[in-house]
Amino acid sequence: MALTPNKDVFITCALTGAGDTTGRSAKVPVTPRAIADAAIEAAKAGAAIAHIHVRDPKTGKAARDPALYRETVAHIRDSGVDVILNLTAGMGGDLVLGSPEAPFPVNADGTDMAGASERLVHVKELLPEICTLDCGTMNFGEGDYVMTNTPAMLRQMAGQIQALGVRPEIEIFDTGHLLLAKWLADQGLLDDPVMVQLCMGIPWGAPDDLQTLLALIGNLPAGWTFSAFSIGRNQLPYAAQAVLAGGNIRVGLEDNLWLGKGQLASNGDLVQRAVQITEAMGSRVLTPAQVRERLKLVKRW
């Protein structure tokens, strides 16, 4: 398989995520204002897209309250800084089973299962250019947490996202998830150009070795646009690897807290480093306007 390095690269910054990272770095944004400021910082550093989760300001834990999204998005839009908004729609598919001997009833602490429409309330209200669609089910960590996205749920969510005129970013955590994405496309539920995020190195999904990445890329349909990232120490090496493989970059504190050994990063730091990597490889970093044109995104604010 012949791969051509990408000469026109866009950078996504995943600002805060849903993981238990706030106790490990004070730079992980928690409040709507802090998350908005992180998006603005990332945009000024060179990110075209801000991928946004929200957190409970009191506890720092993951949340999906539409009011928190509303406040975050309002701060970003009022700032006048141009950045493409990519709101997660992954919340509401969290299943934490009981013990191995008694999986039911499920563990109420961490389980959050919601219907398709409820998972998209904030997307329908705020109409970002992009929202994520986690295209499959998988185990997370060493406990009993399962990210749950059935084919029926994915079909329903994809149809609603399409009707809103929002571009789904298809999150691929393992090889079978790509088959589900193709299945959705075959049903006419994904408009061109299809946008895919290859999420590598997350236990127990696709490992971040080169062979697995190339296998996924080699099975992407012609015309699909992809980004790729890995977590932790491999995040920044993956920025170069994604470009070499013909893709785009994702960095940010959702996936990695460090700029270097012993050096905690901000979102802006990670974007600046991704820009340096891209330009050092002879590629250019695309602006939000250029990405909107390339991906046929609709800006409604």
Rank of each mutant, 00 (worst) to 15 (best):
V285F: 11
D112I: 06
G92W: 02
D255H: 05
A34C: 13
C199K: 02
H51M: 03
M281C: 14
A206V: 08
R33C: 05
M281N: 07
D269H: 02
P221C: 13
G93M: 08
T22Y: 13
N6K: 09
P32M: 02
G205Q: 07
H51F: 02
Q156K: 15
G232W: 12
A152C: 12
H75P: 00
A114T: 08
A63L: 09
S79M: 13
G23R: 14
I202N: 05
T175Y: 07
L68G: 04
R300L: 15
A158W: 02
L244I: 05
V54I: 15
T12L: 01
S230W: 03
G159C: 06
G93C: 13
G159L: 09
S230Y: 03
V251M: 04
D191P: 01
N267R: 10
V291K: 00
R33K: 11
E293P: 05
P57E: 00
T4H: 13
L85M: 04
S283F: 09
A50E: 01
L244A: 06
V146W: 05
G141L: 04
E118V: 12
T278W: 04
Q160L: 14
G19C: 07
A26P: 06
G98W: 08
R70M: 11
A228L: 05
G159A: 07
W258T: 09
E254I: 03
W183C: 04
N107W: 13
L95V: 14
A108Y: 15
A181H: 04
I277S: 00
A215S: 14
I217E: 01
A63G: 06
Q156W: 13
P32I: 01
V166K: 03
A181P: 06
G80A: 09
A47E: 00
I170R: 03
R284F: 10
D208E: 09
D37I: 08
K44T: 10
V285K: 08
T132F: 10
S283Q: 10
K58F: 11
N219H: 10
K182H: 11
T175P: 06
G23F: 13
L85Y: 00
V271Q: 04
A63H: 07
H53D: 07
I49E: 00
T175I: 12
R64I: 09
G136F: 05
G246T: 07
T72R: 03
G176H: 02
Q211W: 14
T21F: 12
P105E: 12
A62L: 14
